[in-house]
Nucleic acid binder design. Structure first.
Lengths: 248, 248
DNA sequence: CTGAATTTGTCCGTATGTATG
DNA sequence: ACATACATACGGACAAATTCA
């Protein structure tokens, strides 16, 4: 069969199809720069020997990545990398989506998917320093940068202090500008909790991801300058498009 | 043909077997507390209806999780959760692995897998403020907490300033204590870059993960108190076991 | 320009794994 | 445990488009 390195980490009967494992390795190799000279992918035959799988399996992997928009195949010429760099999203005391992205991309905006006034759960109440059951406003949003959906957020706000926040957000497309309408001209990031998981149905749909994709989950609390919490939010970022930078 | 919620995120022909998707969801549900009352998993029939798959598929998922050590099945009684919470790994100016974990776990240590003196690549040289090609020491390590492998790290150090660092680490099992032997009694985290990806071969082996698992990747630079970089490291955490907290 | 070499695209058949009932 | 349907993986052969000597 394959060359000397017949087993390069491809796990048979593991519940993950070989073509998906190969696709993940190719995608990762592109990100790390180890695969491809930046423009052209090695031929299918070379890849199939490199990974120790059949050419058809490599073709299935490539087909998935083409569908994903990572690769572009041209008959007779080769397969090319549709590369785009990861967006860096900084986390620091003054981190906000708008300030973070503005130096890297021209067009960025937040889209309001929906909103709802509800009673604060124990978790939300604690984060916002309210009584459990207090009226809070929940906003479901998607963030776009250069036309690509990079983040999907669920945010909670004190409904008493910020009535009609959803209207402000729908008009401005920015949390920062919306807060400004309520007299909050600056705010601080108190804490951020970062984890990662497979994308669920909602993520797949709203971030236009393919099954098996990974999301970075950031759970954050923002305070106003007096130290009172004004926002509790969980944001899911497409891990292929975004990386988080922590400046301490 | 499950109940009304036949589609709960289970993706057919996605390259990931249904039983593995169900296993991932159960593992995630346990971590989030949404599945099981903390000790016992719901019956297989309930799970099969909940996820909209056949009972055989749920059984395959449970068998995999039992093999993994996450669940324990007892004939006639039910399936029980071998529970453990996610470890929180703080990132802040004074973050170190040892200080971060010490309040959550009794037994923790770092294991030296291997070391090598090599010439600094452009990336490493820039991070450590050395000339490209300068002698650097690379350490490959695994971090254990309560007997579970939670992190796999590759670290680079100035070979001139820290000769024999690998011996210090092999003996102490701690970066902090190793630095202390060279007169560095404190140091600061300058920057951290966080991303997520699927586990590769090395991760699967060294963190004892199953294929399809996710790793959180943290790339960090540590400075001494004079602001000179002393360590450049990339750590891969098992995303199922670890979450990162950012205090700003 | 011609023809060989290279590379992707399509078709066949067969064996095994996955999912359901 | 059995039966059925579909997805996955492999092997081979050949067509179609491109490159280059």
């Amino acid at each position: 069969m394959g060359p000397e390195d017949s087993q390069l980490g491809m796990e048979r009967r593991s519940g993950v199809a070989l073509w998906r494992q190969v696709a993940d390795r190719i995608r990762h190799g592109i990100g790390g720069g180890t695969l491809g000279d930046g423009h052209k992918l090695p031929p299918e035959i070379w890849l199939s020997e490199h990974f120790g799988v059949n050419r058809h399996t490599v073709r299935a992997a490539i087909a998935a990545l083409v569908q994903e928009g990572v690769l572009r195949a041209e008959q007779g010429r080769g397969t090319f990398i549709e590369s785009r760099k990861r967006l860096a999203y900084p986390i620091s005391a003054r981190t906000r989506f708008s300030t973070g992205m503005q130096h890297q991309t021209r067009d960025r905006r937040g889209i309001l998917l929906g909103h709802q006034q509800e009673e604060a759960s124990a978790r939300v109440a604690e984060a916002l320093a309210l009584e459990p059951g207090a009226a809070v406003l929940r906003l479901e949003t998607v963030s776009e940068a250069d036309g690509r959906r990079v983040g999907r957020a669920t945010g909670w706000f004190d409904a008493v202090r910020f009535p009609g926040f959803e209207k402000a957000y729908a008009e401005t497309g920015s949390i920062t500008l919306s807060f400004a309408r309520f007299g909050v001209n600056d705010y601080l990031r108190r804490s951020t909790l970062v984890s990662a998981r497979h994308a669920d149905t909602d993520d797949l749909e709203n971030l236009k991801l393919s099954p098996g994709a990974i999301v970075l989950v950031a759970i954050a609390i923002n305070d106003d300058l007096e130290g009172r919490p004004i926002q509790f939010a969980e944001t899911r970022f497409a891990a292929d498009l975004v990386e988080l930078t922590v400046e301490t």
